[in-house]
Nucleic acid binder design. Structure first.
Lengths: 104, 104
DNA sequence: TTGACATGAAACTGAAAGGTTTCCTATATA
DNA sequence: TATATAGGAAACCTTTCAGTTTCATGTCAA
């Protein structure tokens, strides 16, 4: 099951931070690791885990590797949370049903 | 910051399973641990982590400890996901704004 | 084609996570 | 009051995780 890989990926604050960074556009490994105190290989490992969770995709441009957000993977989390949201926000749950009713 | 404790809590499949179980009502430790292959102390540790994340509350009834879901803590996750949802579902993002506009 | 730059990969370390066993404490109840 | 029941707590083990250092590879540019 891949659901666990998504929850695992978002469990780490550095990885969530990377996702936020990538929300404004794709970035090379160097650009990403420049933002953190940790070493480049450490960032590489975080990126690998994000990729395993389907949250980012990577493409090569010359000798660079560009990382782009793939936020659709968060639908897994969104759906999971939605189940529980019925217990704390009927209104949001109702609206979600509307959305899913006339969905693509 | 407590946000991390929520993401940490939901990262484990056993803990997510426990949350699902508690969505139908509060349960004693014995009732919960009976559903899993692991030992009772192991379940106790999971419950402690769920509690630290604010996802459950515990009350005593005689010699029992009853655990109840406290799903409001998932708002943290919901809000976080919502930021990214704008990139994969404009419709849901719009509706969320509506919800927050005429919010309580 | 040489050197600088961007990244990959492997081996290692320390700490946290998930689990167990063993024992102790508190509360019902026969 | 003795005993069974429900849970707490501590010590320990193993695996995973986040990080490091070191070295190798591929690509661009002078």
């Amino acid at each position: 099951m891949t659901e666990q890989l998504v929850f695992r990926a978002i469990a780490d604050p550095t990885r969530r931070s990377i996702m936020t960074m990538l929300s404004s556009g794709e970035r090379s490994l160097n650009e990403i690791s420049a933002q953190y105190e940790m070493t480049r290989p450490a960032v590489t490992k975080h990126l690998k885990i994000l990729q395993e969770g389907g949250l980012i995709r990577v493409r090569a441009r010359g000798r660079e590797r560009l990382h782009a957000l793939q936020p659709e993977a968060l639908k897994t989390v969104s759906d999971w949370v939605s189940f529980f949201s019925q217990f704390w926000d009927e209104k949001l749950a109702d609206l979600k049903q509307v959305v899913e009713a006339d969905d693509d």
